[in-house]
């Protein structure tokens, strides 16, 4: 039942919004993991980011793709909580938990072979600017050194539906999938590798629009 709801959500909401209204161009789709365990580490500017990433995966594995999201925001009322957990399939984490490891749910999901969607910037930042990355993802990688971490850079979604706006304004957006990185053995160098991975995808975007020929 819950798997069906999640697929329906992707078919009826994510696909029409992302593929028809917005329109995305994906580079290096083949670098996306075909099965879990894996972590997608993406930049975060808009609520559309999660919909976009969900639209990249085939329906067959959608129930195993879990966006990691803040419990204090997405479980704040019953309707939002129902939508978040049943339709979007988020893995809620308690940002302010002190006593227990807030990432416990994530470890379990990776052990079950699921694909996590993580936004290492934490919250939605300034559009088109990569904010500082939080180190939670390094804890995940350290605990599961064999799991591939795939950086994904999205451009334009923060302009289509910016933070604080309820109106969606369609525009074409770009998605760049990077090469998977793995735990480097040390937190500093891992975070540096992830940051570089995302930065390079951003630079690739700035170069991508140039082509020589103009034939019909």
């Amino acid at each position: 039942m819950s798997a069906l709801l999640r697929r329906l959500f992707v078919v009826l909401i994510a696909w029409p919004v992302i593929l028809v209204l917005i329109g995305i161009h994906v580079r290096h789709r083949e670098r996306l993991p075909a099965r879990g365990p894996a972590v997608i580490a993406a930049n975060h500017n808009s609520h559309l980011d999660t919909l976009t990433l969900l639209s990249l995966f085939p329906l067959s594995i959608i129930p195993r793709v879990r966006p990691v999201a803040a419990a204090d925001y997405f479980l704040s009322n019953r309707l939002l909580a129902w939508i978040s957990t049943r339709l979007v399939g988020i893995l809620p984490i308690a940002r302010k938990a002190r006593k227990i490891d807030p990432l416990l749910g994530c470890y379990g999901a990776l052990e079950r072979g699921e694909i996590l969607i993580v936004f290492p910037e934490g919250s939605r930042g300034e559009p088109e600017r990569l904010g500082e990355l939080k180190t939670g993802i390094a804890h995940l990688a350290e605990r599961h050194p064999e799991v591939p971490i795939v950086p994904v850079f999205m451009h334009g979604l923060g302009l289509a539906l910016p933070r604080g706006e309820a109106l969606l304004v369609p525009r074409f957006c770009d998605v760049y999938v990077g090469e998977a990185i793995r735990w480097t053995g040390e937190r500093g160098s891992f975070m540096h590798a992830l940051h570089t991975g995302l930065e390079q995808l951003g630079q690739q975007h700035r170069r991508a629009r140039h082509r020589e020929d103009g034939a019909p």
Binding site: G23, P127, L159, P162, L167, V169, P170, F172, C173
Partner: peptide
């Protein structure tokens, strides 16, 4: 037309303040 206009708006620099105007 919608696709063409969307492409045009994706190309040109737009002002953050005009979000609703674009709608």
């Amino acid at each position: 037309s919608f696709l063409a206009f969307k492409e045009f708006l994706s190309l040109i620099p737009t002002r953050r303040a005009d979000h609703r105007v674009l709608f």
